[in-house]
Amino acid sequence: MNKTPFSLETVPCSVSPLSFDPDKCVGCNACVEACQIDVLVPAGAVKSTPFAAWPGECWYCGACVMECPVSGAVTLRHPLMNQARFVEAESVIKRV
């Protein structure tokens, strides 16, 4: 059996769906434990906050944010190409 120790290699992609605010995050790892894809590396292992080692695998469910006890500690953002457009109704609809 191969004895080379496991290593953690971050696999970057073209987007960064997740960001962590080190001033707000308390390092409880609730977000890490919520993610069914295991996209996140726990706080304390490499940085003081969790981080996304496999950001390309995120399916944008928001469970990490929903389980976080501190509002704003973790933020989820869809890629720019996925930001749907909305406009003021007044600019389109001419009401009489």
């Binding site: 928001g62 989820l76 953002r77 749907a84 909305f86």
Partner: peptide, 21 residues
């Protein structure tokens, strides 16, 4: 909950005012 409702609200989407494309 997060990527649509919360994020769109933060971007300023108001269902009483805006049309969604």
């Amino acid at each position: 909950r997060v990527p649509i409702y919360q994020n769109y609200t933060e971007r300023g989407f108001d269902p009483k005012k805006h049309l969604l494309q």
